[in-house]
Amino acid sequence: MKKYFLFKTGAVVISLLTLGSCAKNKDIDPSITNIAVTNPDFQTLEDAAIRGDVAVTLGNKNPDPASGGNYTVFAPTNAAFSRLGLNSAQDLTALQQPFLRNTLFYHVFSGTLPGSALTPGSASASALGLQRRIIRRADGSLYVNGSRIVGTDVRAANGLIHPIDKVLLATGADVLNSALALQSGSVFVKPELTFLVEAVVYCNLQGALTGTPGSPQLTVFAPTDQAFKDLGVILGVALNQPADIRKLPVATVTAVLLNHVVLGGAQGGKFTSELPENTTITAAGGPVTLGAFNNGILTVKGRSNTVPANMAIPDVQCTNGVVHVIDRVLLP
Rank of each mutant, 00 (worst) to 15 (best):
D153I: 00
L118Y: 06
A243F: 04
V189E: 11
K2I: 10
Y202Q: 11
G265R: 10
A227I: 07
S147M: 09
G286R: 10
T272N: 14
A55E: 02
R83I: 01
Q90M: 13
L169S: 09
D53P: 00
S82A: 15
L330D: 09
A94V: 02
M1I: 14
L193M: 14
I32D: 09
G172Y: 01
V144I: 15
D327W: 10
Y106L: 08
Y202N: 11
G296A: 08
V187W: 00
D327G: 10
G10E: 13
T57H: 07
I50D: 05
A79K: 14
G159C: 06
G121D: 12
T9R: 08
P249C: 08
G232L: 00
V56N: 14
V250D: 14
S31P: 04
Q90E: 15
T219F: 14
A283I: 02
D47E: 15
T77Q: 12
E274F: 03
G264N: 15
T57F: 02
P276H: 03
I313T: 09
V325H: 02
A157Y: 01
F221Q: 12
A284T: 11
V12S: 15
V322R: 08
I281K: 10
V108R: 05
L205F: 04
N320P: 13
D47G: 08
L193H: 13
L118G: 08
P216V: 04
T57R: 04
I245G: 01
D230K: 05
A173E: 09
A292P: 12
L130K: 09
A284H: 06
P332M: 06
P276R: 05
N34L: 09
A208T: 15
V197W: 02
L298R: 04
F228D: 06
V316S: 03
R328Q: 11
L17R: 15
V200F: 03
M311I: 10
N87M: 04
F42P: 01
G214T: 09
L58E: 03
L290W: 06
Q43C: 11
T38P: 02
A79G: 13
L128F: 03
Q43Y: 07
G115H: 13
T212S: 14
A266G: 09
A117R: 11
Y202D: 13
I14F: 13
G140D: 10
A309T: 11
P30I: 00
N25Y: 05
N25S: 14
E198P: 06
V197F: 04
A157M: 01
A138R: 07
K3W: 05
V201K: 15
L45P: 00
